[in-house]
Amino acid sequence: MILPCAAVLFDVDGTLVDSTPLVERAAREWAAEYGVDADEFLSDAHGRRTADRVADFLPPGQVAEATERLDALEATRSDGITALPGAVDLLTNMNGLPCAFVTSMDRAQLRTRTEVAAIPVPPTVVTAEDVPEGKPDPSGYLRAARRLDVDPAACIVIEDAPAGIAAGRASGATVLAVRTSHPPGALSAAHHAVEDLTRVTATPTGLRLTTARSVAMARVARSVTRRGGPRG
């Protein structure tokens, strides 16, 4: 399947980078300090700005300080950060198709996690500091499209979390979900879904999606070619 587009707007954490062990350890330490139920906090934290999630649990007067504390706990660690399957290959083979990152992380977190995971970062990046509202608000995706000088409706947003999918849809983009952090049922609002980015390749005018079956068939075809062709 080919999805035509003028640009691709990538979420980062959970889509390109897996930092789940680091985030969970920091959140549990933070939650104990602030008397917050860690499991409840983590249940809807993924894909959202830290300040927005903290505001769900603490009074307005404590949000800024508590957010800084959680950000500091995450910033001191880099253990467990890895690139998700297919991320590096896709980003290094965009074939001239413009792209941007739109993340709920701040700039320091983005820099640390992409460096540790060896993720190439495009020139256009929108972080938590750049928008008045975080996902599911579409501000980040709309800003990225403006910076790339493309119509948001001509973009593909790649996301892994419900809040990000909602943001992408609200921007008018086509949303492609990757099933890297949530079960399929949680991603049903996306227009399309794939297991991970190994199923995605870029062309100058869009993205090509492959299914598990087509990938398996391609492997068989390559194997047959190496053996010199099928026997009759």
Rank of each mutant, 00 (worst) to 15 (best):
L84D: 05
P85N: 10
V88Y: 00
L90K: 04
N93A: 15
M94E: 08
L97T: 02
P98K: 00
C99L: 10
C99I: 03
T103E: 04
M105Q: 11
M105R: 15
M105P: 04
D106R: 05
Q109R: 14
L110G: 02
R111V: 14
R111C: 13
T112Q: 15
A117Y: 09
V121G: 06
P123A: 10
V125W: 02
V125D: 00
V126M: 09
V126A: 00
V126E: 02
T127N: 13
T127Q: 01
D130T: 07
V131P: 03
V131H: 00
P138R: 02
G140H: 04
Y141V: 08
Y141Q: 10
Y141D: 08
L142C: 09
A145K: 02
A145P: 03
R147N: 14
A153I: 07
A154I: 11
C155Q: 01
I156M: 05
V157T: 01
I158G: 02
A163R: 12
A163K: 11
A166G: 12
A167W: 06
G168Q: 03
G168C: 08
G168N: 07
R169Q: 13
A170D: 05
G172P: 07
T174V: 12
A177V: 11
A177M: 09
T180P: 07
T180H: 01
T180W: 09
T180S: 14
T180K: 08
T180C: 10
S181V: 13
S181D: 09
H182N: 14
G185R: 10
A186N: 01
L187G: 01
A190W: 09
H192K: 10
V194N: 03
D196L: 00
R199P: 02
V200P: 04
T201W: 06
A202Y: 02
T203K: 05
P204V: 13
T205Y: 13
L207M: 07
R208S: 12
T210V: 12
